[in-house]
Amino acid sequence: MSHVSEARRPWKLGIALTLLFVMTATFGPLLYAVDPNAQNLLSVLSPPGAQYPLGTDQLGRDVLARLLHSARYSAGIAIAVVVFSIALGCILAGIAQWTGGMISTSLVMFSDAVYALPGLLVTLLLADVLGGGAMVIVFLLWIVAWPEYFRLSYSVGQQIVNSDHVLASRLAGASGGTIFRLQVLPVILPYLLSLGAISVGRIVLAIATLGFLGVGIAPPQAEWGMMINDLRVYWQISPVQLAAPVFAIVWVVLALLILSQSMPKAKPGLN
């Protein structure tokens, strides 16, 4: 069995990049307290300068402020989705593991069905119908994201629970709680966390795609994908303003890339 503590260093670099993004999202808007939606139609598409560090967009809004608020928006949604998904996935995996039989089979089948659903389509289908907004996006991404955690914790959990060492502890009279705390949780947790870190990146990119398509995110809200879509026609006049959200996305991509290349591999029980 592989030990996560022996993971290679890039893994930590990926975590660091992801953390840095989350920190920027948390504290950025506080340190640079400029209203991202304040329009200044007198200085439309003005280049970077003292007043606007990254210039303004086509409506005269501060690009840096929009960038930071967008980071907060995406990171908030992504972390909420990941936390909810881990919770739901683990609880359902626990139930499936505990009860077995019909309930377990139907849970596995249901999660397989949801897993086989292209997630973005569900979001596209329902986001605007449900009125858009952050809560709706969180909800929709959540209902398509949990099966991944369910499958992971179910398959890893299954391996551990059926292993000789858990049986040995059971025969030795250790309680279920003790076994879970000492033998199950420490093994599952690193897998869940690294999948979670990767998911944060993926969800941020999915939100950017939604913003770019103009679905589910109401216009005054600052969003990288939406910023790119708005500014791409002005790429010759305002390259910095367009490059800023692109750079932000590349940052997340990089974090994601390094993480996913070096994350501890779980053996998912496909099919």
Partner: peptide, 25 residues
């Protein structure tokens, strides 16, 4: 699909999403 979503054209949206999902499956 994107146009149907923007116009809140529910029957068309549902049809298109199902078509894409079935194609995928």
């Amino acid at each position: 699909l994107i146009n149907a979503v923007k116009a809140l054209d529910v029957p068309l949206m549902q049809g298109l999403v199902l078509a894409l999902v079935l194609f995928y499956l």
